[in-house]
Design a binder for these strands. Structure first.
Lengths: 343, 343
DNA sequence: TTTTAGCACTCTCAGTGTTCAAGTGCTAAT
DNA sequence: ATTAGCACTTGAACACTGAGAGTGCTAAAA
């Protein structure tokens, strides 16, 4: 990391903050007037030229002011994190209160959380419910549904309930189902979904086990039940974002809407982020996916105990109020963590 | 309904169809050339002027061609329905095939259905899963979840499974829960969710019943379980729609995105439509909601037996290929009906 | 009586030139 | 090392223009 002398750093800050607040390229005059450096525009011009040379700023065209590059934002973000200069008020307790009433229904909880985030931030709110690789089975119940169909109800430690209809060739009695469920519970409860999938495959390869009709049936059911379960992605706030001056260009809007609809891509992105602790920020071109290269992502993980199990966050333009975004995301993640613990 | 003589009608058709295919106001020359009426532009001009006077067409400005009004579209739509002139091929069997694999998971089925619709039509695909007032309870199961919490699993005749966590004050045994579930099943199965809600309220007012501890508890659980259940709304295809020339204006896009995010409003709209049979079309200003006054909606109901239980459809610009939209929506609704029956 | 050719008229759109303000980099003075 | 001054560059805003498309009206033709 390049280090900058105090004065240069402060001017970079000034440019970034000004640009975050007013979406026009910022010129030397603006900085000189708006920030009490006691420096003339000319001096500031020189420094800004240096910053441009180093890659922190960029001129859209010769006679325009300067705009931060992704690298400029990155530098800015690093310093506000270490300075932890974001001393926001908490005007949104009451919004959280509403969410508290939803804690028994995880899906609605998450979808409302994204709405809350987007209301607060004016960017896109995103959330991902716990994924299979961290979701631990608490209990599985099997209920007879139709002649040759059963319903598997999966309860997880994280409070998720998933259900799945499974077609089985022959008829089974509820009594058999209970025995099967008992076996599955004794075998698999406490393990993550991913582990269970692997275990099932391993077990099924053992011949002597497969001879036991009931156990073999149990494993088959189990395999079906855990197939095709994944973390759900919630996104909202498009109309908020369209009010921003950053999205007046039709092409940018198209790009954004494609990014939103391509949930799979975003899930992949969040997957990577869901393993780390605390707030994480990805700025523009740091994103590996093309559609996201002009967007920034601020996320944090919510946890069960010490283990991060999912992600909430914000997607917005690179010209984002990072400090506010960090604050909102951080608080929301902590709030979700608390809610899941209280449940 | 005003009747038009054959020739006038045909010219209106020509204008509408031309405009649907090419998003520019259509002039008399275009009609004369493109459609074999054996009439000169001048004559057609006169007729178009008549059509404008009657309110079927509209000139954006003096020297432009003409564009259909909502009334013009309405007339057009009525006649293609009676003529049933939409003889499309069926190039999308294979798309439906994919959906067939999903029939055991209603939520994914519907969300994929909307994606399919939007892919086929290039408009927004919408779908609403069965609503409480038509959803009939097949079976309720109660499972102990935590010390003071239980999970209610509701199976419906339509193939929906809903689950809900319910906090109860005291502890209950699974045995008690089974007895309660038995009681609830004997009492309520076969009834719609709405009926059950009403019945519960009625029962609870009877004093002697409330004296029975178990029954009273059962009713309370039941009330909780059926509270806050509604038809889910699925929408997709925004990025498809943004490719249309109808949505190049930022304000229109904003309006559209607001309409999409305001799911509640759309649910209200679909609610009304879900009671009728067959394809229904609402054109622009015929919509009662402001955000939708520049959009058209084409929907059809899917059924269980003869009873319509939900809606699938298309939202697009008023300049919509209605014939294609009708075809897609009609087929998709029938397809869903079939899938639900086979389940 | 109905249809059509002809024509003047209207309006939008794309392209052009001009001006204006903002902001720069450089140089010379402080 | 800083700053004032100045020439220079550029995009945005605006008015202007001509071309093109389409109209309505009138008078002639069918």
């Amino acid at each position: 990391m390049i280090t900058l002398d105090e004065r240069t750093r402060k001017i970079l800050h000034a440019v970034v903050e000004n640009y975050i607040n007013f979406p026009d390229p910022v010129g030397s005059r603006t900085v000189a007037k708006g920030y009490p450096f006691g420096l003339s525009p000319a001096t500031i011009r020189n420094i800004m030229a240096d910053l441009e040379e180093m890659g922190f700023l960029l001129q859209p065209h010769t006679s325009a002011g300067r705009v931060p590059t992704d690298m400029g934002y990155r530098f800015y973000v690093e310093s506000i994190v270490t300075e932890s200069s974001f001393l926001h008020k908490e005007p949104f307790r009451e919004l959280y209160k509403r969410l508290e009433t939803l804690k028994d229904n995880i899906d609605i909880l998450f979808s409302e959380t994204t709405r809350t985030i987007s209301k607060l931030s004016h960017y896109l709110g995103i959330a991902m419910s716990p994924k299979p690789d961290v979701t631990t089975l608490n209990k599985i119940e099997l209920l007879k549904y139709k002649a040759d169909k059963i319903a598997a109800i999966l309860f997880t430690d994280e409070g998720l309930i998933k259900n799945k209809i499974i077609s089985i060739g022959a008829e089974v009695t509820q009594k058999d189902l209970n025995r099967i469920a008992g076996y599955l519970n004794s075998e698999f409860s406490g393990h993550t979904f991913d582990e269970i999938r692997q275990k099932v495959i391993k077990e099924m390869s053992k011949e002597k086990i497969m001879c036991d009709r009931l156990i073999s049936k149990a494993l088959k059911i189990c395999q079906e039940a855990f197939y095709f379960l994944y973390g759900d992605l919630f996104i909202s706030g498009l109309s908020e974002v369209l009010e921003l001056p950053d999205f007046t260009d039709l092409n940018k809007i198209k790009e954004l809407s494609r990014a939103i609809e391509d949930k799979h891509t975003i899930i992949t992105l969040l997957d990577k982020l869901s393993e780390c602790n605390g707030v994480q920020i990805i700025i523009g071109s740091e994103n590996s996916m093309d559609e996201m290269k002009k967007l920034s992502v601020v996320v944090s993980t919510y946890k069960e105990g010490d283990r991060p199990i999912g992600v909430v966050g914000i997607i917005g333009p690179t010209r984002m109020n990072y400090s506010k975004a960090i604050y909102i995301v951080d608080n929301t993640a902590k709030f979700i963590t608390k809610m899941l613990a209280e449940r």
